[in-house]
Design a protein around this nucleic acid. Structure first.
Length: 270
DNA sequence: CTAAGGACCTGTCGGC
DNA sequence: TGCCGACAGGTCCTTA
């Protein structure tokens, strides 16, 4: 479910509620996530406090004095802040009780998410091999051009590869390719530097706008009704198969690419 | 090394 | 109304 903007919005949303406060307890209600949650997590983290919440790709990192809690939301995960006495919902798998008052709850119906404890300054293979953040200058037209030479894979798959760049999920991959007029199936190796620069700009653009939209929904972050409070930008192609292209009026098409739903305009994207 | 496809899960929706 | 298959915003692992 969450794309990068949702993860970042979550990060900003939880910070004021958890940073600098005492973690009274850690309750693991269901350890069977994508990888099993270690019982060590509860033992080590209880009694500490979160000093910061950072993000690498779609991984959230909650720092304590002695290490970090690393959380990925997978497809269907969310974090919510609720009063600690409020009823657990189905699929509330892990919770951090803060100041004996509120709870930070990890909710994830499909259990594709994960929660790890990283001791001390330890990193993790899952974040060590990630490509650059999309909203930094490191992710540039030159970078994408150089990396893509000789890569005989569809450009959509290429930009969704977290070793190439992090944080480009299926929705925004579709949107950015539409914005830059590139056919999702085109081989990465076959696209000019100019067009890849345009693609990079589009990725930054669409993520920026989604982030802005997330910011406006921040005040709704704390809620108890079980809805994660995610948001959806007005999307130009994603989910619009059979509807007219906003650019030319032709009917938008849908097909599967790399096992993911792909939407595009055959007139505007080449 | 790269590229493609399966795998992991539950919930929801559309069609019959 | 009930059942069944298709599909869902991620990404790792295995295989070729």
């Amino acid at each position: 479910m969450p794309e990068l903007p949702e993860v970042e919005t979550t990060r900003r949303g939880v910070i004021p509620h958890v940073v600098g406060k005492t973690i009274s307890a850690v309750l693991i209600h269901e350890p069977r996530l994508r990888w099993p949650v270690s019982p060590e997590l509860a033992q080590v983290v209880t009694g500490q406090s979160f000093t910061e919440v950072t993000r690498r790709g779609k991984y959230l990192l909650f720092g304590t004095g002695t290490g970090r809690v690393m959380i990925h939301l997978g497809m269907s995960g969310s974090l919510r802040i609720v009063p600690s006495q409020s009823n657990l919902l189905k699929h509330d798998h892990v919770e951090f009780i803060i100041d004996n008052d509120i709870a930070l709850r990890f909710h994830d119906p499909r259990r594709f998410g994960s929660v790890f404890w990283l001791q001390g300054k330890a990193s993790h293979d899952l974040i060590d091999t990630l490509g650059p953040e999309p909203l930094t200058t490191e992710f540039s037209g030159n970078y994408l051009f150089n990396l893509s030479r000789g890569r005989r894979t569809a450009i959509k798959n290429f930009i969704m590869n977290s070793k190439v760049v992090v944080g480009v999920g299926n929705i925004y991959a579709n949107e950015a390719l539409f914005m830059s007029g590139i056919n999702p199936s085109r081989l990465a190796s076959n696209i000019s530097k100019i067009r890849l620069s345009r693609l990079v700009d589009s990725i930054k653009d669409v993520l920026d706008k989604a982030l802005e939209a997330g910011g406006t929904t921040l005040r709704d972050f704390v809620r108890e009704d079980g809805s994660p409070g995610y948001f959806k930008l007005e999307l130009k192609v994603y989910g619009r198969a059979g509807k007219p292209c906003f650019g030319c009026g032709n009917i938008l098409k849908q097909f599967r690419l790399g096992n993911r739903s792909t939407f595009f305009c055959s007139h505007c994207q080449h």
